[in-house]
């Protein structure tokens, strides 16, 4: 045990491990804050859809040879988030069908573009890395870390500033509208923040596992706690602990970072489910 601790202390002296931990915990915190709202509003799969859009956008950035792919990935993902919300409300293709359509469409087009036009010698490695995160979080540069920190601070600040409005539209959108809350504008805000989190979280767990980061902590917290605030606090704590634990386990025992974090989330979900079952 002391050997493991010594190894861990030694690993934490590496700058890339410190960067991974800072960014990982911030992403986990952000995703858990929004997760509760998304789950309660039945938007759990919007994260999945948007992450696939981000994958497609990343492929386009790669094909165009754009060095900083955030310039393409972020606007496309934000635009898709807005379109998904609008499409869900007003057109013949409703909610889940629109998400599914955009999700698989973007994934297929992204993979197709990567295969047809990629200049990389290791396409399968690139795809695997983007879909499952691989060790992306452990290969961040200092400017990327700062970008993640600033974006995370914006997400947290927006959530705290508009907490009461988000609470209102999460539980009863029609009532919120009747009381003068501009629900459409706040839905748009939630969509934009969700898109931001998706783009950030692709580094941590990859685009296929992002939904887990959004839904598992919220669902776990909902097993035990009942008020909106307590669920959000518990969800944030679970998410941060699982992300930290996942990163530590992956560097100690050479497991893939993304799936280790999700495995920790699943384990906590079952523990909380058991607690709620015993309480009944």
């Amino acid at each position: 045990m002391s050997n493991i601790l010594e190894t861990l202390v030694m690993y934490f002296q590496y700058p890339f491990v410190q960067y991974a931990m800072i960014v990982g915990l911030l992403i986990a915190l952000c995703s858990s804050l929004l997760g509760v709202t998304l789950v309660l509003k039945r938007f759990s799969f919007i994260g999945d859809g948007l992450s696939h859009v981000a994958f497609g956008a990343m492929a386009i950035a790669g094909v165009l040879g754009v060095s900083n792919n955030m310039l393409i990935v972020l606007p496309i993902t934000v635009l898709s988030a807005v379109l998904l919300l609008r499409t869900g409300q007003n057109t013949k293709i409703k909610g889940d069908a629109a998400v599914a359509m955009i999700s698989v469409g973007a994934l297929a087009m992204g993979y197709l573009l990567m295969n047809l036009f990629s200049s990389s010698a290791n396409i399968s490695g690139d795809v695997c890395s983007t879909l499952f995160g691989s060790t992306s979080i452990l290969t961040l540069t200092k400017p990327e870390v700062w970008l993640c920190i600033i974006m995370a601070v914006i997400v947290i600040a927006v959530f705290l500033i508009f907490y009461h409005k988000i609470f209102a539209i999460t539980f009863d959108e029609n009532f919120a509208k009747a009381t003068g809350v501009k629900a459409d504008a706040y839905n748009l805000l939630i969509a934009v923040i969700t898109a931001l989190i998706i783009v950030l979280a692709m580094n941590l767990v990859g685009s296929l596992l992002i939904s887990a980061l959004i839904i598992f902590p919220s669902l776990s917290a909902m097993r035990v706690f009942k008020s909106f605030r307590s669920v959000i606090i518990c969800s944030a704590v679970i998410s941060v602990i699982c992300a930290g634990l996942g990163i530590i386990i992956s560097i100690l025992f050479s497991t893939p970072v993304g799936s280790t974090i999700v495995a920790a989330d699943i384990l906590v979900f079952f523990m909380f489910w058991l607690v709620s079952y015993c309480k009944k």
Partner: peptide
């Protein structure tokens, strides 16, 4: 009022992506 706040947030996001260009400096 709300509209302006959202526009301000979107502008911040756009500015941040522009700042991201610095990442290239380290990789070059």
């Amino acid at each position: 009022m709300m509209k302006y706040q959202i526009i301000a947030i979107l502008c911040c996001v756009a500015l941040l992506t522009a700042c991201g260009k610095n990442t290239e400096i380290v990789q070059n």
